[in-house]
């Protein structure tokens, strides 16, 4: 398929780099300031070099990428809240042109799920968004396979940064600020870690899962989630948890029409107590007990592999 990749951050770049490996062609690539298009396939290596050296992928207006000929629009611009723009606008344009859309950007399906589904109903295109929840882990496709009807609850560790901080605090007996600084040095945490440590990122993923499980009966947005972060957890809390054979994890839960994210006590030996940047999602199924899906929940190639798996699931145009 022909892909238009919008967004040239870690995920967009990896999608461009790996597309050929999955038998697809990148015909358009845009960052926030520029675009490059070629109906026969752009020069991915040259484009990424240009991005590294000049800070832009090409010379054309970014809109030309969205307006070009492609089968699938890969939306990998940064997640925005509220109106979810500009990502939502890109989804709208592509669907109105009857193109498929694969999202890595959480905004449109976390904040405007009903709008996205309404646009999809009017379109010949399909929207898939596996990459928005848990990076490389096949969470949404597993829910789809089991049928949301037969899944009563999900819970999990959905933010690698927060999990890294909590596991390091517990393992080394260090304070939050100390471990955060270390995580920033390692590139595990961003300079502004708010999104990760205050639970927003995990909550967006849970909201997306809640939307999928609700099957249109109810729409969830970030406002519907009860969210607590980890920045006020002192080392002494982890120490007391440990004495009792437990540990603290930032857990997102979707159950009984509620979305909650917050620090929770879990047994140290529990499947949920993953360490480092690893993520895990547990699905409670009606007829098959509990299902654990664990793996890398973030990262360029990891998330790109979920994007490209979605591309593979799309019907031919």
């Amino acid at each position: 398929m022909k892909l238009a990749v919008i967004g040239a951050g870690a995920v967009g770049r990896s999608v461009a780099e790996l597309a050929a490996d999955y038998g697809h062609t990148v015909t358009a690539f845009a960052d926030s300031a520029s675009a490059v298009t070629d109906a026969d396939g752009i020069d991915v290596t040259g484009t990424l070099t240009s991005k590294d050296e000049q800070g832009r992928v090409g010379t054309a207006d970014p809109e030309t990428a969205i307006a070009s000929e492609y089968d699938v629009l890969v939306e990998a611009t940064p997640t925005t809240l509220g109106d979810a723009e500009p990502g939502f606008g890109h989804v709208e344009t592509a669907l109105k042109r009857d193109r498929h859309v694969v999202l890595a950007n959480k905004g449109p399906v976390a904040e405007r799920y009903a709008d996205v589904r309404a646009l999809e109903r009017e379109s010949d295109g399909t929207v898939l968004f596996e990459a928005t929840v848990g990076g490389a882990m096949p969470v949404l496709s597993t829910i789809d396979d089991f049928d949301p009807e037969h899944i009563s609850a999900t819970r999990g560790v959905l933010n690698g940064t927060a999990n890294f901080i909590l596991s390091r605090m517990a393992a080394e007996g260090l304070g939050y600020e100390h471990v955060l600084a270390e995580a920033q040095d390692l590139g595990v945490a961003e300079a502004d870690p708010t999104f990760d440590v205050e639970g927003t990122d995990a909550a967006l993923k849970c909201v997306i899962v809640a939307n999928v499980l609700a099957q249109g009966e109810r729409e969830y947005t970030l406002e519907d989630a009860e969210v607590d972060g980890i920045s006020s957890i002192p080392g002494s809390a982890l120490e007391l948890a440990q004495e009792d054979g437990r540990t603290v994890r930032l857990i997102g839960e979707v159950a009984n029409d509620e979305v909650r994210v917050g620090p929770r006590l879990v047994p140290e030996t529990a499947a949920l107590a993953v360490s480092g940047t690893r993520n895990i999602v547990q699905l409670e199924t009606d007829h098959a007990g509990r299902l654990n899906i664990s793996g890398r929940g973030a990262g360029g190639p990891e998330t790109a592999s979920a994007v490209l798996a979605d591309v593979g699931r799309l019907p031919e145009r």
Partner: peptide
């Protein structure tokens, strides 16, 4: 407050 998992969540 660090809570335990809610009902059904014995992990």
């Amino acid at each position: 407050i660090v809570e335990p998992l809610t009902a059904g969540g014995s992990a």
